[in-house]
Design a protein around this nucleic acid. Structure first.
Lengths: 151, 151
DNA sequence: TTAAGTGCAAAAACTTTGCATATTT
DNA sequence: AAATATGCAAAGTTTTTGCACTTAA
């Protein structure tokens, strides 16, 4: 589990005149407790919190996801669906990548250190502060190759 | 320019019981004539065709973009905006990657052969037919690092 | 001829915004 | 106390779908 605590979040927020609220804390905690490799859309998260008896409005969720992605706390993933999905942004060495079938959207996660290194180098060379590095590979999975008339 | 002709498209479509239509041909040609590095959203394409005096309905455009992405003819890019964008899918060695600022969405394109090789290897190992391989790096650009209270 | 494709308009899905109220600092 | 954050409802965007008509094979 990652060592990003609520008080670290508070410190970072306050530094810019922003505030720590129960909602932000709940959302951070939710992502931290999510099993590795899971990722939630805004709506997923909203439903999850509803069911957990700790509801947060969809608009706050959207605002918070965007905020935390811009702070580097969440990774924003765009798999082939049209919704964005989020997961906690662990330190770079933990970043994983995705191999996706463009027909059935079957997705495989994998890691690759060489890719991460290349990404970090590129970011640094351009003076960017690196937040996330994801390789997105699209292809046709073995199953879909067999069926001649796919979607 | 790439060697994917209308008749190659026709052959591939017919193989699956699909058809070559003037709209599909126009859309293919439009992407082939697009300067390298450009990419269009569905709406961009619609406007472009309108202005060119050869309009195609938005729904057909959406249907065609999805179709061609699934055939591997177009690359589907998800930069940080919420619209998907498309460009012609040149052979793998021409694939380029993106370094994006999460605050201002400033985007830098770059190439990296090692990343492409790693991607191809991963796809093959899982039996996927490789269509596209893109590295997406998110970070904070030098400018936005300087401004303490960004969006 | 007939099954697939198009365009239109309507619906659905996803995201953002204005504003009154509540909360953090 | 002052400024930020929330929730709601409404609006804005982007994408999908149903259907009658057209067209490629």
């Amino acid at each position: 589990m990652v060592a990003y605590t609520a008080s670290a979040l508070k410190a970072e927020l306050n530094e810019r005149g922003w505030r720590l609220t129960p909602q932000r804390e709940t959302i951070l905690r939710t992502f931290q407790n999510l099993p590795e490799g899971n990722h939630l859309s805004a709506e997923d998260l909203c439903d999850l919190l509803d069911k957990a008896g700790d509801p947060i409005s969809l608009s706050t969720i959207y605002r918070t996801l965007k905020l935390m992605a811009r702070m580097g706390i969440l990774r924003e993933l765009e798999l082939s669906e049209s919704q964005k999905r989020y997961e906690i942004n662990q330190p770079a060495p933990h970043h994983h990548h995705h191999l996706i079938c463009v027909r059935c959207t079957k997705t495989i996660e994998f890691k690759n250190d060489a890719v991460l290194k290349a990404g970090a180098k590129t970011a640094i060379r351009s003076g960017y502060h690196l937040l996330d590095c994801q390789l997105l590979i699209q292809g046709i999975c073995p199953n879909c190759q067999r069926s001649l008339i796919p979607v």
